[in-house]
């Protein structure tokens, strides 16, 4: 028996979210008396693969194949399923990012395994297997019983602490069987976002709403974010108006994020906006209206004008950093 984690690399490197997943998997394995096997697809050097051992992977299965240079959902599903079967996996864990969301459902059918998607807690119990997941766009949680022998989980990013509890790991190269014509997705071109902290990876996010008044007022918000090493985000009307790029839109119809700290500046706090950010550990609101609903979701608040408050926050961070 094993707990299989599918680990994705970005240009040969793993991200924090990967180590969170392996840490999570190692606790699930402890709960179910089994071992963590990580599956890596793509060219990753052994030194990087070995890092997975520190977080509890006892074995890393590495698959390299030119057919897998780009994500083809059918080909990737086939590889993960082959490894899951070979390793006798009882639980398969993927990230709840775009890749995980693309693969987990296909894998579910392939392995006849029920899915708990977007989980952000350890299973409530192993026998029977019950996990808690988001429902009604963050307005509730569902306790979901997975009835199949194999279970698939997609883990929400930033929902589990990294824990170093392992040591060395065995690296095994696996030759996945990929027949002719399996890969059907042809990638024509790739546009990568470079030099920016990804919203879904960020520990701290600074987000602006219509209360920012104009696209020309964003400089202090961006400066504040840069000083904090934070990603920038916005509410839907802001991206609809073209004040900020679409990738920054958070909420029910945008990105769903769970940073440690989320600054909502000039954002009213509509339910559809909160649907994307309510899992943040701390929410800080700056708003001129003391009755704005965002203050009911926030732990810290300032009733005031963003254009006056932001420069003060920038100054305070500079002072903090100078110390």
């Amino acid at each position: 028996m094993s707990v299989l984690v599918f680990v994705e690399n970005w240009d040969g490197k793993f991200k924090k979210a990967t180590f969170e997943m392996v840490s999570y998997a190692s606790i699930v394995a402890e709960m179910s008396n089994s071992n963590v096997v990580a599956l890596s697809i793509g060219n990753v050097e052994n030194a990087e693969l070995e890092k997975l051992g520190k977080f509890g992977a006892t074995k890393v299965v590495s698959v390299t194949n030119d057919k897998l240079n780009f994500l083809d959902n059918q080909a990737y599903t086939s590889v993960i399923a082959q490894v899951a079967e070979k390793e006798n996996a009882e639980v398969v864990i993927l990230s709840n990012n775009n890749t995980g969301k693309a693969l987990a459902p296909r894998l579910s059918v392939r392995l006849k395994a029920g899915i708990g998607s977007g989980v952000n807690h350890l299973p409530l119990s192993i026998t029977p297997f019950v996990v808690q997941k988001r429902a009604y766009s963050g307005n509730a949680f569902a306790n979901l019983l997975i009835k199949t022998p194999v279970k698939i989980l997609t883990l929400a990013q930033n929902s589990f602490e990294i824990k170093e509890n392992g040591s060395s790991t065995l690296i095994e190269n696996f030759n996945a069987d990929l027949g002719e014509g399996v890969v059907k997705t042809v990638v024509k071109d790739v546009q990568k976002q470079t030099g920016k902290i990804l919203l879904t990876d960020a520990d701290v996010v600074v987000s602006g709403g219509r209360g920012m008044k104009s696209p020309d007022n964003w400089a202090p918000l961006v400066e504040f974010a840069e000083l904090l090493g934070a990603a920038t985000a916005c509410s839907r009307p802001v991206s609809d108006e073209g004040w900020r790029p679409h990738e920054e839109h958070t909420g029910q119809t945008g990105k769903i994020i769970a940073p440690n700290l989320y600054f909502a500046i000039g954002i009213s706090g509509a339910t559809q906006h909160l649907a994307g950010v309510s899992s943040s550990k701390y929410i800080v609101a700056v708003n001129t209206d003391k009755d704005a609903p965002i203050f009911s979701a926030a732990q810290y608040g300032i009733v005031g004008d963003a254009s006056k408050v932001l420069p003060k926050l920038v100054e305070a961070v500079k002072e903090m950093k100078a110390k």
Partner: peptide, 16 residues
């Protein structure tokens, strides 16, 4: 494959 055993409401957050 799955069944919802029950729903829970999010814990109320501490006052701002």
């Amino acid at each position: 494959y799955t069944e919802v055993m029950g729903y829970e409401m999010p814990k109320p957050r501490a006052a701002c």
